[in-house]
Design a protein around this nucleic acid. Sequence first.
DNA 1: CGCTGCCATGGTAGCGCTAACATGTAGACC
DNA 2: GGTCTACATGTTAGCGCTACCATGGCAGCG
Lengths: 335, 335
Amino acid sequence: MSGPQRPPVLADVAERAGVSAMTVSRVLNGTANVAEATRTRVEQAVADLGYRANTAARTLAGGRSRTLGVVGVETPYYGPSSVVFAIEAAARASGHAVSLVSLQRTDAAEMRAALDRLRLAHADGVVVLAPISAAVDAVADLPPDVPHVIASADPTAGLATVAIDQAAGARLATRHLLDLGHRTVHHVRGPRSWIDAGARASAWRRELRDAGRPVGHCVTGDWSPHSGYEAGRRLAADPDVTAVFAANDQMALGVLRALHEAGRKVPDDVSVVGFDDTPESAYYEPPLTTVRQDLREVGRRSVELVLAIIAGDAAEQHASVAPELVVRGSTAPPP
Amino acid sequence: MSGPQRPPVLADVAERAGVSAMTVSRVLNGTANVAEATRTRVEQAVADLGYRANTAARTLAGGRSRTLGVVGVETPYYGPSSVVFAIEAAARASGHAVSLVSLQRTDAAEMRAALDRLRLAHADGVVVLAPISAAVDAVADLPPDVPHVIASADPTAGLATVAIDQAAGARLATRHLLDLGHRTVHHVRGPRSWIDAGARASAWRRELRDAGRPVGHCVTGDWSPHSGYEAGRRLAADPDVTAVFAANDQMALGVLRALHEAGRKVPDDVSVVGFDDTPESAYYEPPLTTVRQDLREVGRRSVELVLAIIAGDAAEQHASVAPELVVRGSTAPPP
DNA sequence: CGCTGCCATGGTAGCGCTAACATGTAGACC
DNA sequence: GGTCTACATGTTAGCGCTACCATGGCAGCG
């Protein structure tokens, strides 16, 4: 009867091209030397047959799976999905599949279990999304069985990391407000356990010190708009406050509302800067000046780095993605 | 010297337990009958050696990979990440790994390529997150090579689906407003191409018709707060408008702002209901009455259904998750 | 001209597991 | 007691691919 119901295998390609299976394998993997004519013939046969290499067999025989693992931390605040999707896109571009594992908690045991699952899935490398210090610590404690990269963490000795340059972003925000003429800047920071929150807060403080300015109030929130609102009420009560830097856009939203209720106009009386550039922030009232993080770039660079580590030619263990200040309507010179 | 550097394989377990490799395999897979004593001995050997079955070998020899594929559509509005994470959690609970592929566009070619990639990854089954009609159509056109389930789509002939019962949610919202005494309800709907938007809009209309009420205005937004704001300005201009049902919380936020600016108090003058119950909505001013979608449950049920289809004992091709009305401060009887 | 060395290719032997069949044992029933 | 059946287990043969070593051919060289 008709053609093969069963998908073609390597041997079929070999037969059609009139070469051995080994030669086909070499062409497919680009290893060793193959004569130009032979290579062309094999590639033609592959195309004719619509051959696709069997991943399981490749993994079993060769040890490599062309799969990257991603460990995601499940949280309603952080936007890990864009990083995950960016990782997937970058991995796809390099011919890798993506295996996903998520963490309910971020203790060492869960992290260990997650990495174990990815080893079971034969992941060639792993990208860990670890916005919380405890998660980084958990990874640091693990033996590096599988090459891994931590995304969104500060450069740490012994760990490969990729992150938004939080310090640069926080300094951009603070400097922008100082440049407008504000005497100092007050800060609504994120929770203690979050790496990014700490990085933003200390860079804010450093920028003020470097500029020889008094350091403003620092109120701790939990990333939620509500916590921003609470912080905003406290800051609104102080007439000296003319500039606020909130560690994320959601808290900035809360600050905006609190200031509005207190009758202090933004940006005429008080300027507000956020961090993240969420899709909503351009529609806030007024549109929010904020620091844009290119999370897609973080994903891309993470894949790049983990592939370099796998290949054994990672020149640099840390990659940093520059954030960008987006000036909108919530900042102006002080009254 | 010391123990095996190489991780233990099935043969090691067999030897230690004093049985054949096949028997170990049977114990591991729970297939066929194994004497109780033998099973215990094998399990002990597995535990002693810390044996983990090799996924690649299992897949190659058995055809099953214990991997589920997820096709995600990348969009800033929909919250697919919670569904993805829920799928991962459910898959993990059933002993499956998760392979992720994302779509930049939602045409048939991209969808085909995505499913092809997952077939290459030997996915036993696939869950497609397809909030846009075009994506569903693309799947419907494909041969069902691999068992698949569409999440967040209306029940469609020939396709297995799991979805929030959008109609029930929209009716809950509408009925709540009618029950409070409003004469009719106006609607800010989502974009045409989105399945959920259409489902919510027609259920809103149906509920009003069933109640014998006049059908209010229906304004189309794009899910963004800005579009909600625009819609809200139009509705605010009409003094007869006392109740608005927005198809998502972000647009509801825009409506709230527009009403506020127009000097119409919420909920005293106008009641507003959203849809989604995002983490922020409880912190809006006033806190938003909305329809909660249990997206985690959608993920869980999707995995359940696709596993049932794989096993060949799917009693029902469609699963529906009931939404829930969350009454907060944005709704009250009409003035 | 015979040796070395490199290149292109082939053969063989698994990687670790499971499907399919084969075997052996014990009880059931006439 | 013998055949039948059911169950517990073993044996064999791959799944599709790649590592490793072997082979043959040909240029370079003294």
